[in-house]
Structures are given as C-alpha cells and as structure tokens.
C-alpha cells in the first residue's frame, strides 16, 4: 500500500511539475488582466485581441507554411537519400551516414553560425531561401533516420520479385518499396514539422530581417518588459496546447486501430 502511494506521489509530482505553468497560462488566458495571477473576471478578450492582431496571425501563418515547405522538401530529399544510402556500397553509405549524423549531434548554435557564414559569403542578405535551407538542414537527417530502419525491416526479395514480374526499377520502387517504408516516411515528416515549428536558433541566424516565426517573435517580445502582446501570447499558447492534445490523441487512436487491423489480418 505504502509503496503504491509513493509511486502515485512520484508520478503526480512529475505531472504537476510539467503542467502547473501550462495550466496557469490556460486559466489566465480567460481573463483580460495584463499580469498573470490577477483575475479580472472571465472573458474571451485575449482571444478576440489575438485573432484581431494581424501581426501575430501573419506570423502564425508564416511559421506553419515554413514548417510545411521545409518538411515536404526534407521528406522527399530524405526518403530518396535513405533509399540511396540503403542500396549503396558500404563506403558511400558510411560517408553519407556520417554526414547525416553531423546536424543531429552538433550543437544547434554551431549549425546556425555555419549557415550564417556561407550565406554571408555567397550573398550579404539573408533571405527566405536561406531560412528554408536552414530548416531543411535541421529536419532532413531525422527523415533519413526514420526511413532507414524501415528499409532494413523490409523483405529484400520484394523488390527483386517485382523486377522478375516485369516491373521497371522505378515502378518497383514506387509500387513496392515506397508502400513498405511509408510509416517511416510519415514519422519522419511529422518529426520534421515538429522540429521546424520548435526551432529558434537556426531560424534566428538564417531568417531575413522583418520575418518572424512564433519562436523569434515570442523570444523578442519577452525581452521587452510589459510588451503589449504578452497577454495575447497566453491565448496563443492555450490554443496551440489544445491543438497538440487533439493531434496526439487522434494520431494515437489511428495508430492503435491500424495495429489492431494488422493483427487481425495477420
């Protein structure tokens, strides 16, 4: 009994630690008070202000679009790359694997300044292109790392069988290999979106002036004492939190259903 109580206490402490700040932010997003902690009656004022704030709305849109662009590029390039690595000779594959691991192991600030240096050498101005490249660099390795295990799990004879049955190599790749590794590709894509949305440091070093993502905007707003947008950011955080809870729950139920479906069919 005591043991069980201690177990529950530890778990409860962990959850309390993680969720107290988030919970407070959500609660106080429903009152118009400027400082967190003073309750000035229930209202949706902050949400109305947020949705009327064209600047923040534009930044949210830009952040999401950037994450989608970068992730689509990373997913395509990374999937092609993973297939290439998987079928390459040992030396070429090893070299590519080392390159894949560099941005994963490297400190983000080092990746960020290295990109800043080459873009400064090529052109003085940072552009949307340099920002996009930056986000592809930080997300691409994770797509490759998600796809390669699926290639390893795949039955190698499938591709040969397709060729024997008269498929061209490219058709075999699209119709046989691709469906087999699709879960890895999807996982890589989702991971890429998450990493891109979450990024601050590489964004700060590759973005053109005047362009902001949620990360850079929030960081710069926090630095200004009593910034007028801070209360609205509470509402934004609450919305993002809600979206994430819904997405995670939906994905998990879909995953479980797929697994069950597979079990039944096997």
């Amino acid at each position: 009994m005591v043991k069980k109580a201690i177990k529950y206490a530890i778990l409860a402490f962990g959850l309390l630690f993680i969720y107290t700040p988030i919970f407070l932010l959500v609660v106080f997003s429903f009152t118009p008070a400027i400082t967190l902690g003073s309750w000035e009656g229930f209202s949706f004022d902050l949400y109305v202000q947020l949705f009327n704030n064209a600047k923040i709305m534009g930044i949210v849109k830009d952040t999401v679009l950037l994450a989608l662009f970068a992730s689509v590029i990373s997913t395509i390039l990374g999937t092609i790359g993973a297939i290439g690595i998987f079928y390459s000779k040992k030396k070429a594959a090893a070299a590519a694997n080392v390159m894949t691991r560099i941005p994963v192991i490297n400190a983000e600030i080092v990746t960020a300044i290295s990109l800043a240096l080459i873009f400064a050498a090529v052109a003085l101005q940072r552009t949307y292109f340099s920002l996009l490249i930056g986000h592809v660099v930080i997300t691409l390795p994770f797509v490759v790392l998600s796809v390669i295990p699926k290639l390893k799990q795949m039955d190698g004879n499938l591709y040969e069988a397709a060729l024997d049955l008269g498929a061209t190599p490219s058709r075999a790749l699209f119709k046989v290999v691709l469906p087999e590794i699709l879960p890895g590709i999807m996982a890589g894509f989702m991971l890429a979106v998450t990493l891109s949305l979450d990024d601050y440091i590489v964004t700060a070093f590759t973005k053109p002036t005047g362009f902001d993502t949620i990360s850079t905007y929030v960081y710069n707003s926090i630095k200004v004492p009593q910034h007028s947008a801070l209360p609205q950011l509470r509402a934004l955080s609450a919305i993002i939190f809600l979206i994430i809870v819904v997405v995670v729950i939906v994905l998990n139920t879909v995953n479980k259903k797929q697994k069950k479906f597979k079990e039944i069919n096997d």
């Binding site: 297939i83 290439g84 079928y87 941005p103």
Partner: peptide, 22 residues
C-alpha cells in the same frame, strides 16, 4: 537505386560539410 544517394549527399556537402569548413 544507388544513384539516389547523390542529391542527398550533394545537399549535405553543400549545406552541412562546407559550412563547417567555413
């Protein structure tokens, strides 16, 4: 199939390895 490694490696050399050399 192994030629598929080329675009990926090219990108990584251009935007990961060369920047580090910088």
């Amino acid at each position: 199939r192994k030629q598929l490694i080329i675009p990926y490696s090219l990108f990584m050399v251009l935007f990961v390895v060369i920047p580090l050399l910088f």
